[in-house]
């Protein structure tokens, strides 16, 4: 899974969010390093909805603006869990090796 996809799933993991809400949350989660464009967001949402990782929770129209709120499904939660564990494993190995090098005085 690519980073934007991972961040999008993470953004809707705790509560349903609409398009711009997801974009903002991704920026916060990534510490400002990832700024999603609308095209990236909607291509990913369409793919994740197709795979059953995300579903539409509700829609609302306020002041002529149509917003659709997305939330993580059970399948999405499983997928995000697996991906997070994989990334955490990689990060752990990287940190261990960096520590080994540091302790060795290299």
């Amino acid at each position: 899974m690519q980073e934007p996809g991972f961040l999008i799933l993470t953004a809707v993991a705790d509560e349903p969010r609409h398009g711009y809400g997801i974009m903002k949350e991704v920026e916060i989660i990534s510490g400002g390093n990832v700024k999603l464009r609308a095209g990236t967001l909607y291509a990913a949402l369409e793919r994740f909805v197709g795979k059953g990782f995300i579903e539409v929770e509700r829609e609302e129209v306020v002041d002529g603006r149509h917003r659709r709120f997305y939330r993580l499904t059970e399948d999405g939660r499983t997928e995000l869990n697996a991906e997070a564990a994989r990334l955490a494993g990689n990060a752990r190995v990287a940190l261990q090796r960096l520590n080994t090098i540091a302790e060795g005085g290299v």
Binding site: H18, G19, Y20, A38, L41, Y42, R65, H66, R67, R68
Partner: peptide, 11 residues
Amino acid sequence: ADEIVTTLRDA
């Protein structure tokens, strides 16, 4: 389409 336009406007 409306949703995408809204997202752009929100942004």
